[in-house]
Amino acid sequence: MKKLVLTAAALAMSAGMALAGSHATTVRMGTEGAYPPYNFINDAGEVDGFERELGDELCKRAELTCEWVTNDWDSIIPNLVSGNYDTIIAGMSITPERDEVIDFTQEYIPGSPSAYVALSDDVDTTGGVIAAQTATIQAGYVADSGATLVEFATADETIAAVRNGEADAVLADKDFLAPIVAESNGELKFVGDDVVIGGGVGMGVRESDTELKEKFNAAIQSMKDDGSLNALIRKWFGEDAQTF
């Protein structure tokens, strides 16, 4: 009996130490929480979406303790760099401009197209007023296309701008727009051709954090290898979504 108690105490202690040890490596996962189905705050007030499920699985495979943090899209890179959290997992496309400031893991979503959405078909996507979220690849694309760019802090506000006529159309990731168009009862529709801007989506980490980057790279690779990443993409973005 005494031995049992001792064993239990030893177990509890080692568990406590393991807990303390794992706590020392808590990885804070920064996301926007306003870009469904990539990431959003669900009705219980928690981070939810494709990236929540993916991130939790990656942390499990990399044996990391992860905590979710939300941050405005606009300041998401500066706050990573100054150390408020350790990763950006927020549907961020890998671009050379961003790569100069932070590092990216390998892609966890292949390069997916962006699309224009408007109230009517006869919208001039190269000469009209186009809404896009600030500091996105789409905003950069619109600025270069000759159209008048109006920027908004959140993706939701870009849709609202099209609905109330402030902008003629919105350019955003097609995966983000598809459920909105589908549920608008025909009010909103895709116009023009899809455009492919930038590469795939990866996790952002500080340039000095190569160890963390390698851990997540390995975890993403293992999810690609066993097909679970493709399954996850199909679950959140539909059967037609591009997979690896």
Partner: peptide, 19 residues
């Protein structure tokens, strides 16, 4: 702003822009 934004059926309580 978060609650008022339009919600698709990815949420339990979908609604239009209520900001």
């Amino acid at each position: 702003r978060e609650l008022g934004g339009s919600k698709t059926s990815a949420f339990t309580y979908p609604h239009p822009d209520w900001r």
